[in-house]
Design a protein around this nucleic acid. Structure first.
Lengths: 201, 201, 201, 201
DNA sequence: GATGAATGAGCCTTCATTCAT
DNA sequence: GATGAATGAAGGCTCATTCAT
């Protein structure tokens, strides 16, 4: 089966010019297969696009899930989660590009967010709840908090990658995690968190 | 000239299915004019799209600029700016949709952010600098802070509009402004800010 | 009535880029009138084109006719006719251009030559007959001879105008007339003709 | 590749109504292929047109070249060349029609003659020079003579084909060659030439 | 009558998809 | 199964022509 080869090729092609500017013939050429074989693996261009998001989305979810399911305090989990998030997107920059461009990340009006995105939100929602239960995070709608976290991670990562192309994933993740802590934590916990971070660093 | 009618019609059409799914014939029909008239107002589909962003972008920038240029402390300016931002996008929800979908907001790789977005970033960058100078905001790269602010406003607004479709612009703006204060302010200023907000509310 | 203004304007416009590249709006602009007025004068672009050929064709025919109807020997008539032909086309170079490009001068297959062209052929056919009757021209199908004369005049005039843009109509006409005499005259008459020409020159 | 099939089909279609009246769909239908296949062979309608002139032009040039390069006196070469010229255009009457209509044969003003036409002129120019060197042709600008020859051949061929549709290429070529000899040869050579022709015929 | 804004049929071209080999 | 040549529906754009003012 050529499914995975097609998806990683499509990822590179879509990353170059976006979904609409990319042609099925380009995807096939990038994969080194024929159009017929491409259509043997996926019935349509749209399905390739969706399968790409399922494929990378599942990997992405698994990577973050592995970080978040460690039995640790919410503050540590947040750190680990952010590192997983940042690490994955930096290793898969093409996917990041595709996702930023046309990932249906943000539901607006009647356009639903994509399933992978919704699953990602659920992961972080659970962490938000844990942080609230621990008294670390401010009380608010955890799903909304998760969405903000997701968005801020994406935006900051994109901006920081653009501005400092040579920064390591660890550096970027640390900066982003600090911003998230400020956004999420109860003020009275922030000092303790900062102290803890200082010790870790 | 039909330029404005075309732009507001195109805004609705693009908001429905995105740029590529929208046909010039649909835009013309939405505007109640013929294809020929549409092409009399704009030379190409791409130009309609770009003109839409210039048109609404200029309004958007002006609205926020009016809020930010008031001679007030950075904390007040932030509030006013967020209200302007949220108010505008809620009054122009179709534009918000178009912009979220294909506004070239986030520069990735070699794709430049759109001029309107860059101008928006500059506005907020100036505010970030003021907040830093006043000792209210944490010291960081002001442009990066502005980008985060921009991103968080978009994300939270989209999420909140989705979840509470009936919330007023004022309510949403207040919630978003609080989140931004946590993100931006020095911890030791947050208590004072919270107290001030309580008084205002 | 704007018919003549339209025709002379159309002539300039058609001469620039040919019939198909010329737009009715350009013709109107060249004439300094509106599209509505243009369509008041002519019902269609095609009719403008045809009317132009009738208009200039009639002038052309009249000019040549005046030369050919002089009661002179065929040799003199030929000279006068060529001078009229060359003079007219040099005074109306735009028309010459239009005619060379898309004048339907040469009937091929089922495409008929234009009426003006056919009338022109008839003029010269009569002269050919006269030359034959006088024993000056070789005996051949006079209409075919006329067509050759017409063609050679056009070709040589175009080529000579291209190569010597500053030559006068008289110079060009003389050169062309000599070529025509060689083409048409019985060999034994050529010497006499040449002598006569030398005297005239 | 369908390039040649497309060209011969386009030749027939263009011959019917000219370039502008011909639709790509017609060309495809004439060739018995789809639009997509047509566009696989040529990137645009204009390129089909130009390729047609290159294709037939090259054949035409080769045919005439083969005749002219024979090591024979200019008088014989002229005969052979005219026969090649006439033979080719009668075998490719559709091309003749296309070429007469829009072959850019006659440079007028700033419109350049087509490359194929210019190459043709060069062939005949060389022959003119040979004729002059042999003392057979009158001394004149050989390029201008070549242009006249080209034009007279076209005009007479068109006229003769129109008037005598059943005449053979040989008959027409002989008539045309005689006319050309009168046009080109020094008077004192004409008698000898005529005698030679009589012997050949 | 004069205007020129408005119309919309028509054509070139692209590219996702199919299917004979 | 693999191939890639072939398909043709669809859509951007033009410009001759109309008609309300």
């Amino acid at each position: 089966m050529y499914r995975e080869l097609v998806l990683t090729s499509a990822e590179r092609v879509f990353a170059r010019g976006g979904y609409h500017a990319s042609k099925m013939a380009e995807v096939a050429a990038e994969a080194g297969i024929s159009l017929g074989t491409l259509y043997g693996a996926f019935p349509s261009k749209q399905e390739v696009f969706e399968a790409l998001h399922e494929f990378r989305g599942a990997q992405f979810l698994a990577r973050v899930e592995a970080a978040l399911k460690q039995p640790l305090p919410a503050r540590e989990s947040l750190r680990l989660g952010v590192h997983a998030f940042v690490g994955f997107l930096m290793e898969h920059e093409d996917y990041f590009r595709v996702d930023l461009r046309e990932g249906r990340s943000w539901a607006v009006g009647d356009v639903e967010a994509s399933p992978a995105f919704q699953a990602g939100i659920r992961q972080w929602t659970a962490l938000m709840q844990r942080g609230i239960d621990e008294g670390l995070f401010l009380e608010d709608d955890p799903e909304l908090m998760a969405t903000s976290v997701f968005g801020l991670m994406q935006v900051q990562l994109a901006a920081r990658m653009q501005r400092k192309p040579d920064a390591t994933a660890t550096e970027l993740a640390d900066s982003i995690a600090e911003a998230l802590e400020r956004l999420l934590c109860r003020p009275e916990e922030l000092a303790a968190v900062a102290a803890a971070n200082a010790r870790t660093a």
